Simulated scan of single mutants.
Amino acid sequence: MAPSMTAPVRPVPGRVKLAQLLALAVPALLLGGAYISEYVFGMHPCEMCWWQRWPHFAAIALALLSFAVPLRKLLTGLAALAILVSGLIGLFHAGVEYKWWEGITGCATIAASEGTSALDAIMNAPMIRCDEAPWDLFGISLAGWNFLISTASALAILVLLVRSARNVAR
């Protein structure tokens, strides 16, 4: 028999490493974009926008931890699930913006005003509503883009991890 037929297939560390890098880079870039849109372009987040950010923070922490401890596949998979959760919240938020369904009735945030009294800040700050998209690209809101990017990247990470596990089993 040829050596290639009897030699066991070794795991492909490149797939796991790529999954780890995606699990770290995607939420970091999406959060970076969110903060740039907030602090550079003045698009303050509504409450549902914040809901989408929290799973990305968790994904970054899990992805960073995956580089430091031996449970890298598990932690990377959990990071992918956190990214997926953010994407699904983005789908819900986009549906509210597009009026596909009704959102949380009291969903609004008041943008902070600095340098004034608390009462003046509340009275003069603009109301940020969850059912109005402040910006879109090709008709897709920021929440819609979060859904598309987060869901696709989470699935890609999970596929990389599954393919890595299949190579180990062979």
Rank of each mutant, 00 (worst) to 15 (best):
E47L: 04
P8C: 09
R53I: 01
P45Q: 13
M48I: 11
P134I: 11
K17C: 04
H56L: 14
F147C: 06
K17I: 13
V26A: 09
I89L: 03
R129C: 04
I104S: 03
I83E: 02
W51D: 05
A82K: 01
E132I: 07
W54C: 03
N124K: 14
A79D: 01
A23G: 10
G42P: 10
Q52R: 01
R72K: 08
V162W: 14
R10M: 13
G77E: 05
A80N: 04
F41T: 02
A112L: 12
S37M: 14
C107Q: 00
A125S: 15
N167L: 07
S86Y: 00
L81Q: 12
C46D: 15
W145T: 14
A125C: 13
L18H: 12
L142M: 13
N124A: 08
G103M: 09
A111K: 15
W145F: 15
W51A: 12
L29S: 08
C46K: 13
A2W: 00
L71Y: 05
L62I: 09
W54P: 01
S164I: 07
G77D: 05
L148G: 11
L22C: 13
I83M: 05
V96S: 10
G90N: 07
A165D: 00
F147L: 12
C49F: 10
M1Y: 14
E47S: 04
P11R: 09
R72Y: 02
F138Q: 13
S37W: 12
P70A: 11
R10H: 07
L29R: 00
G139H: 08
L137D: 13
A121S: 15
L30C: 06
A82Y: 03
T105W: 10
N167G: 13
G115P: 06
S4C: 06
W101M: 00
L137S: 10
V9M: 06
A108Y: 09
V168R: 08
W50K: 14
G90P: 06
D131Q: 01
A125G: 15
G14S: 02
P45V: 01
D131Y: 01
N124G: 06
F57S: 08
P11H: 09
V12D: 05
H93P: 06
G144Y: 01
L155V: 07
E38Q: 08
